[in-house]
């Protein structure tokens, strides 16, 4: 019988590593009277199979709906030629909705790719909407910078969340949300102000920024408490 030299426990034949400490176990030939019966099947993961089934059903149904909507819109467009622009806007939006559903159903397994995917689809959607009338008015000046800003803020939030998800979520999630919204407001005002006046003078976003960042610092400060040195100093200066 094979044994793990580290844990001292008996193991099954043909096991490569000790299940407890991962120590490599050498292959030992079976004894003559030993009958090896496998205890477990090589397990399949039921989750992906079952979830994929449900997801495919939803996606297939919605795809048919979207395809019908596009066909109806194109038919209307070919019969009534009064509002071609409006119809084109609708067709673009419906096609974008199809891509959004594809991503939101989680076909891209990684959350970071899904968020990037939503950003790219939104970029393409705004680009297409802006170019319907043949002129580019707002895509490069407003839509693209705002999309990039939002993506960056979301990635920053996720990075911070992943770093602290084992800690107290009632403290960290609100704090990081406050910081994210504060940064978003400043970024938005910068973009809007720059495009409107070709210069940056922060006003409302500064107020939002100061309030939200103060709240976040207060929450984190309460959680981490003050360092001993500062506490000592306050005690010394303010003792009654």
């Amino acid at each position: 019988m094979p044994y793990c030299p580290r844990c001292g426990v008996e193991l099954d034949y043909h096991i490569k590593n000790c299940p407890l400490c991962q120590f490599p176990i050498p292959e030992i030939p079976e004894e003559n009277n030993h009958i090896n019966v496998e205890k477990f099947p090589r397990p399949e993961n039921k989750y992906f199979e079952e979830i994929l089934k449900v997801k495919n059903q939803i996606f297939f149904t919605l795809s048919i709906l979207i395809l019908s909507a596009v066909l109806v819109l194109m038919t209307i467009n070919s019969i009534i030629e009064t509002h071609p622009l409006a119809i084109n806007y609708s067709i673009i939006s419906v096609i974008a909705a199809w891509f959004y559903i594809l991503i939101l159903l989680g076909y891209l397994s990684n959350l970071y790719y899904s968020i990037l995917g939503i950003g790219i689809v939104t970029g393409c959607l705004t680009l297409a909407l802006d170019s319907v009338d043949g002129k580019m008015n707002w895509f490069f000046t407003y839509a693209l910078p705002i999309i990039i800003l939002v993506l960056l803020v979301i990635y920053l939030f996720l990075y911070l969340y992943n770093r602290s998800k084992l800690l107290n979520q009632f403290i960290f999630i609100p704090s990081y949300l406050f910081i994210a919204v504060a940064l978003l407001s400043v970024g938005l005002e910068c973009i809007l102000d720059f495009q409107a006046n070709q210069s940056i003078h922060l006003s409302w976003s500064l107020i939002v920024f100061i309030i939200l960042v103060s709240l976040a610092v207060l929450l984190l400060g309460l959680y981490y408490k003050l360092p001993e040195m500062i506490k000592e100093k306050i005690k010394r200066k303010l003792h009654i």
């Binding site: 844990c7 001292g8 426990v9 299940p19 407890l20 477990f40």
Partner: peptide, 8 residues
């Protein structure tokens, strides 16, 4: 004595 079995 302990005998260990697993599905890992």
């Amino acid at each position: 004595p302990v005998k260990i079995e697993t599905n890992r």
